[in-house]
Design a protein around this nucleic acid. Structure first.
Lengths: 152, 152
DNA sequence: CGCCAATCGTTGCACGGGCAACCAATAGCA
DNA sequence: TGCTATTGGTTGCCCGTGCAACGATTGGCG
């Protein structure tokens, strides 16, 4: 067994490197953690969501989301509004300041993705996307019930 | 910008899922952390290495390696021997108990990899490997000097 | 030889995040 | 209506790990 050829190892290494590359933007320049970054992007995309929606497939633990939301609120980047139809949950939305950050950070993040993908031809990029999807579906089957799902 | 289509995000999700799948083996069944697991595998492969060799491309921080080595030694899975030619570093090697774990865990880990890859055709597997390599090389260029490298 | 720089490894500190227990609110159902 | 189960979210606790500073050893070079 050769670690350097082991798929999960290589995926971890690659994911770590890309995260590092990205962190130069959202962390060093905007002081965002990974969870905060994901929340900003999601709200930039969907306008109005609940905390639960921030981790669609259980990618983040709900406690992680909770704390990131608190931090973002404290910094004035997002606001919480009660959902009167179901007072257990709250609506989240970007403030103008939050949206400003989103609009500053998103293009740069996409540029990093671009630079990454520039190592591949368009055909390869397409193929890679397809393969990642297949593997992700398969991994979901093999992984223990993704985060929570069995909360109670 | 759509998070679910963002390459670094997808890589993180996939890496996380595969890690989870693997952790069912090395963590739940053998009580190994990721760093410990990597050390066991590396020593199973190379027989005799130093702590520094455990993180070839700076994938793990040296403090992480140091603590994992201590833990493995305490559990009697590896031994340290002084290198008399350079007393700053130490040789690491598996004990019989450590090798037993390696030999129990490696086939199962490979089986998980197998199940993962079974979602792809052999041609796709080959292609995926090549693409990962290309992206990893590129990511290394974009990421801030990998862990340490600039230690002093 | 003697000094400074570089290298291997350890450790104190702080922080992020997982886990589990918990509260509040709603849903299901008799 | 009332009782229990479920769900959204928060928080205390603990562990893993990155960072930076350090001790010990070696290398480079005058």
């Amino acid at each position: 067994m050769i670690l350097e050829e082991f798929l999960p190892y290589r995926l971890n290494v690659l994911a770590g490197l890309t995260s590092s590359a990205l962190a130069q933007i959202y962390a060093e320049r905007f002081g965002l953690s990974i969870p905060a970054w994901r929340i900003i992007v999601t709200l930039g995309q969907y306008e109005l969501r609940t905390a639960r929606d921030m981790a669609p497939d259980g990618v983040m633990h709900k406690s992680t989301v909770s704390r990131a939301v608190s931090a973002l609120e404290k910094r004035g980047l997002i606001v919480r509004r009660p959902n009167l139809d179901d007072r257990r949950e709250e609506w989240l939305a970007l403030t103008p300041a939050g949206r400003a950050i989103y609009e500053a950070v998103a293009p740069e993040a996409l540029a990093v993705e671009e630079r990454l993908l520039s190592a591949l031809t368009p055909q390869e990029q397409q193929a890679f996307t397809v393969l990642i999807d297949k593997l992700t579906r398969q991994a979901r089957l093999l992984a223990p019930r993704s985060v929570e799902e069995d909360d109670a």
